[in-house]
Amino acid sequence: MTKRRRQLSPEERRLWAHVAREVKPMKGRTLPPEPEPEEKPATAPAPDIVLPSSPPRAAPVKPAMPPLAPVERKTLQALRRGTKAVDSVIDLHGMRQSEAHMALFGFLHRAQTSGQGIVLVITGKGGVSASPFDERGVLRRMVPHWLRLPELRAVVIGFEEASPQHGGSGALYVRLRRRRGAG
């Protein structure tokens, strides 16, 4: 089954001819002939298409931060086996969400400044609530969200759930970026 090709309108042919004039044809090829301008009724003149002689320069795009990467397998194995220790620990138990947010941001920036590579963030698992309307485990759910925020992308490379001896699902290993210009 063959597709029918749509015929170019006279305006599209004129536009293509204008574009084709700007390029050098390949050896043995010639430029397509310029279409004859068609007469249009005087009742509704079409606006002329103005083509720039060179493409406009786009505003410089700020490079996006790379995506978060998981903590390397070897590092995770060493942490789980106890052959590598975390550099620092913060326990967010018992803090309100706003307090924990500020404490986490400050802790991560201080840890990065002091050259630490892997830190442990303890969120707690959240207990069983007495009422179905009570929200439990808020920090456990919110801390990974905070670690993905653009404000922390210059600090955090990635994070993983901690091993059981470090808190399991109620804690996270967070890998920090090296500080630029240090050392």
Rank of each mutant, 00 (worst) to 15 (best):
M1Q: 13
T2A: 13
K3N: 12
R4T: 10
R4V: 09
R6H: 09
L8S: 06
S9W: 05
P10T: 05
V19S: 05
V19Y: 08
K24H: 12
K27I: 09
K27M: 06
G28D: 02
R29A: 10
A46R: 14
P47H: 13
I49C: 05
V50S: 08
V50L: 14
L51I: 07
S53Y: 12
P55K: 09
A59L: 15
P60V: 08
V61Y: 04
M65P: 15
P66S: 12
P67D: 09
L68N: 04
K74W: 08
L79K: 02
A85M: 12
I90H: 04
L92S: 03
G94N: 04
R96G: 09
S98K: 12
F107R: 01
Q112T: 01
Q116D: 02
G117R: 13
V121W: 03
I122Q: 07
I122L: 10
K125F: 08
S131Y: 11
D134M: 11
R136P: 03
R141L: 03
R141P: 01
R141M: 07
M142I: 03
P144Y: 04
H145V: 15
W146P: 00
F159N: 00
E161G: 14
A162H: 02
S163F: 07
H166F: 04
G167R: 02
A171G: 02
Y173P: 00
R177S: 03
R177I: 00
R178M: 09
R179M: 11
R180E: 12
G183S: 14
